[in-house]
Amino acid sequence: MSDKMHIKLTVNGEDKEFLAEPRDLLIYALREKLNITGPHVGCDTSHCGACTVTLNGKSVKSCTMFVAQANGAEITTIEGIGSPDALHVLQESFKEHHGLQCGFCTPGMITRATKLLEENPTPTEEEVRFGMAGNICRCTGYQNIVKSILAAASEINSAKEAAE
């Protein structure tokens, strides 16, 4: 064990300060030090994406990043996407289209999907499938996840058009 580091993060808009060992992974800092349990650990090897968060505007697998590397970063987890009174379009869409079953992959899925739709607001089905390939789901077979994301994209775009 080595000396602890002073870590500062902005998580879901809130400033957080805590001590962590250099070897502490971001996912455990979030889950165990900050009690943010939406992101999950599924594989430890960055294959499954259950731990996906948005870090400084990019989708990141928090199980394969030291919290020390994230020092100073701005992080959004599923807890920072939508609120109980006003769900994000993607959250609504996953509910509407049965885009989840056991729910374990869902926080990472939705977190990744928010970025995917920022990167590409009008994805084709193929682009959704490729863009979500870093997130594994064991329950749904992806068909309804893809449907949920495409439906959300079209809803976001219609809302934008209506606003313009």
Partner: peptide, 21 residues
Amino acid sequence: RKRVEDSRFTQGKGNYVDDIK
């Protein structure tokens, strides 16, 4: 019928065993 489970799961409020502290 839409699933009643989904509100908590889509908001990261599932309670899995590793969430127990």
